[in-house]
Design a protein around this nucleic acid. Structure first.
Lengths: 192, 192
DNA sequence: GTCTATAATAGGATAGAC
DNA sequence: GTCTATCCTATTATAGAC
């Protein structure tokens, strides 16, 4: 990303930088190098500096989760098809397990309280959306939340291992396991 | 930790700071505040500065993993008893899920290559030790590594969620699930 | 919308007194 | 073993030219 610094691309590159370098590891110099913008020019796009850069990055994650939620609540689509769509979205977003999760980065570091609160809220949004996917597979409300929490946690852990070991296996295996679970759930629905 | 700056306590506090603030979020000022030492005094204990602080922190993790490995290879101790010991060690080390993992922190951030390489090696050490625990429960070598990798990943993901949500549930649930798995394995051994 | 210049602060590290 | 003083660089942010 050296040319075409239109806003959406800019925010996407900033988000990728946070995910690769962490919050405190993302300096204006790093952003400047990765976007091709001068250090000062960054303030034209993010008036309040680093905090706004982080907030706009979280906007991207919120949109991502919203799209997942819309996919999940779509009528006339099978459970397996819904998960297939989401699996593709996740694989694309995490680039096959090589790029970390912004929420995990902000959760692990000592970030300003506004970011911490929003990170927590977005994790809840994601887990609740996933819980509804399990419910559409006939899982009871109490169990669905536990399963969703486990899936999100499994994904986060796999991302850490995949990144630490520079190997997509943990990430791909976790996706495959969730796929298997939804496959069995679908079979259960048809078998009733 | 304001008094008693004997070396072991110092390193432990430094490691806790890395785990709470991340690598780039851990500045000499932060260390100075948390240990009560002046900024310069830190260099008496860690001659090469921040990098050595990180290395000594990883030493602590290496020792922790070594103790797990010794526990696992002890003769005349049941599978369940071994896991019980390790579970207690993990609960203590992660303070009930409220404190992150140093390896995860270094894996997610953009840290110097020496730290990245050692982080990877320590993850391998941990996973291999856990794999041997599964093998002592009769699991085949190929499967044991996969199970171990899943356990470590599950723990890492749970730690992220527990910290993000300030709630020990994901961490405790993950420990409980592993306990259940080893319980079934033990029953399988006795039932043969 | 981007740049140069600038300034104030924070971060990492060293020298030398005590 | 800790401190004060100091240094250089990096970081964040602003002002104003183009």
């Amino acid at each position: 990303m050296k040319e075409n610094n239109s806003r959406p691309d800019l925010v996407a590159e900033v988000a990728r930088t946070f995910r690769a370098n962490g919050f405190h590891g993302t300096t204006m110099s790093v952003i400047s190098k990765r976007t091709g913008l001068g250090r000062s020019s960054i303030y034209h796009h993010f008036g309040r500096g680093k905090l706004e850069m982080a907030q706009r990055s979280l906007d991207l994650i919120e949109t991502f989760i919203d799209v997942m939620a819309v996919t999940i609540s779509a009528p006339d689509i099978s459970l397996q098809a819904k998960w297939g769509t989401i699996e593709g979205m996740l694989r694309h977003h995490y680039e096959g397990g090589q790029l970390g999760c912004l929420l995990a980065v902000f959760a692990m570091e000592d970030v300003p309280v506004e970011l911490r609160n929003r990170t927590k809220a977005l994790f809840d949004l994601w887990i609740n959306a996933t819980a509804r996917l399990y419910e559409s597979g006939g899982v009871e409300s109490a169990d669905s939340h536990t399963l969703a929490q486990k899936d999100v946690a499994a994904l986060q852990g796999a991302l850490i291992l995949s990144r630490a070991q520079s190997c997509a296996t943990p990430f791909e295996r976790t996706l495959a396991e969730i796929t298997t679970r939804f496959g069995k759930l679908s079979a259960g629905i048809q078998g009733r």
